[in-house]
C-alpha cells in the first residue's frame, strides 16, 4: 500500500520500532542466561555461555504450581464462559420474548463497567461464601466479567444462522435443548474460537482479582507468583529475568503456534465490544 516510496526510510522506521518493541524483551531473555557476577560486570553484553541454572532454580521453586494454577483457572473459566454465554445467547438471538432487549442491554452495559467498581463487594461476598483464598473463588468473577463480550459475539454470530435449519428440526419434534446442542452449537465453532482466545489471554494475565481474592502462595496464579519471585530474589536480577521469561513463555508459545487465529480473535473480540 505504500509501494511507491523508496524503501530505505521504511526499513529504518521498521527497525526503530523493532528495537522499541523488542529490545526490553531481548534484554530480559539475554540477562536470564547469565550468572549474577557476569551481570554485575557487563550487564548488557551477550552471555559468555548460555546457562540454564536460573531456570532450573525456578522449577525447583514454586513455578510449576503457579503455572498449573493459572492453567486450571483459565481453562475452567473459559469453558464455563463458552457454555453459559452460548446458552444465554440462543434465546437472545433467535427467540422473541418481551425481555429480550432489556436482558441483552444489561449484558452490554457490563462492557463499560470498571471491574474495580465491583471489587469490594466481590471480596466480601467471596469471604462470606468461604471461597476466599481458593481458586474456585476466582472462577465466578472471571466468568461474570467475560460474559458481556462473549454474549455479544455469540448473539451476533447466531443471528446469521439461517432459520430453515431449526424449522425443519422443530417439525421433527425437536425441543429447544436438543435443537441448541445438536444443531446450533456445532455451527458456532468460529465464534467459540474467538471467545476462547479473547478470554483466555485476559484471564491468563488477570491480576487484580487474583491479588484481592487470594493470599497464600498455594493458590497464587502466575502473575502473583512473578511478584513473589521478585520479592524473594531481590538482587538476583538474572534470576528474576528468568522468572519473567518463563512466565511470559506459555502465551508466546501459543501465539507462535496459532498466530493468525489469535490476532483475528483479539481484533473481533475488541471491535464487537
Amino acid at each position: 500500500m505504500i509501494r511507491k516510496i523508496s524503501q530505505m526510510p521504511i526499513y529504518l522506521l521498521a527497525i526503530i520500532l523493532l528495537l522499541f518493541t523488542g529490545l526490553p524483551f531481548f534484554i530480559m531473555v539475554n540477562t536470564s542466561f547469565k550468572q549474577q557476577l557476569e551481570f554485575m560486570t557487563s550487564p548488557w553484553s551477550l552471555p559468555e555461555s548460555i546457562s540454564f541454572s536460573n531456570y532450573a532454580l525456578l522449577l525447583e521453586l514454586d513455578f510449576t504450581r503457579y503455572f498449573l494454577n493459572s492453567l486450571f483457572l483459565s481453562v475452567a473459566s473459559v469453558i464455563l464462559v463458552i457454555v453459559l454465554g452460548a446458552m444465554a445467547s440462543y434465546p437472545l438471538a433467535r427467540l422473541k420474548f418481551r425481555l429480550n432487549k432489556p436482558v441483552f442491554l444489561l449484558f452490554m452495559i457490563g462492557m463499560m463497567i470498571p471491574i474495580h467498581t465491583t471489587l469490594i463487594p466481590i471480596y466480601i461476598l467471596t469471604s462470606k461464601m468461604g471461597l476466599y483464598d481458593t481458586l474456585w473463588g476466582l472462577i465466578g468473577p472471571y466468568v461474570a466479567f467475560a460474559l458481556p463480550i462473549s454474549v455479544i459475539i455469540f448473539t451476533q454470530f447466531m443471528r446469521d444462522i439461517p432459520r430453515e435449519l431449526e424449522e425443519s428440526a422443530k417439525i421433527d419434534g425437536c425441543g429447544h435443548f436438543r435443537l441448541f446442542w445438536r444443531i446450533i452449537f456445532p455451527l458456532l465453532t468460529p465464534a467459540v474460537a474467538t471467545v476462547a482466545i479473547y478470554n483466555f489471554i485476559h484471564i491468563w494475565n488477570e491480576f487484580i482479582f487474583a491479588l484481592v481474592l487470594t493470599s497464600s502462595s498455594d493458590v497464587a496464579t502466575l502473575p502473583l507468583g512473578l511478584r513473589e519471585f521478585y520479592g524473594e530474589f531481590s538482587v538476583n536480577v538474572p534470576g528474576i529475568m528468568a522468572a519473567l521469561t518463563l512466565g511470559s513463555l506459555p502465551l508466546l508459545l501459543v501465539y507462535f503456534v496459532a498466530q493468525e487465529k489469535i490476532v483475528k480473535g483479539l481484533a473481533a473480540g475488541s471491535v464487537k465490544g
Partner: peptide, 27 residues
C-alpha cells in the same frame, strides 16, 4: 417456550447478576 428461555438464560444471568449487577449496587 418461556421455561426454555429461562433455562437458557438463567445460569449466565445468575453469575452476571451476582458478581456484576449486585456488586455495583453494594459498592
Amino acid at each position: 417456550e418461556i421455561l426454555a428461555i429461562i433455562a437458557f438464560i438463567a445460569p449466565a444471568l445468575l453469575v452476571y447478576g451476582v458478581y456484576v449487577v449486585y456488586s455495583i449496587f453494594m459498592t
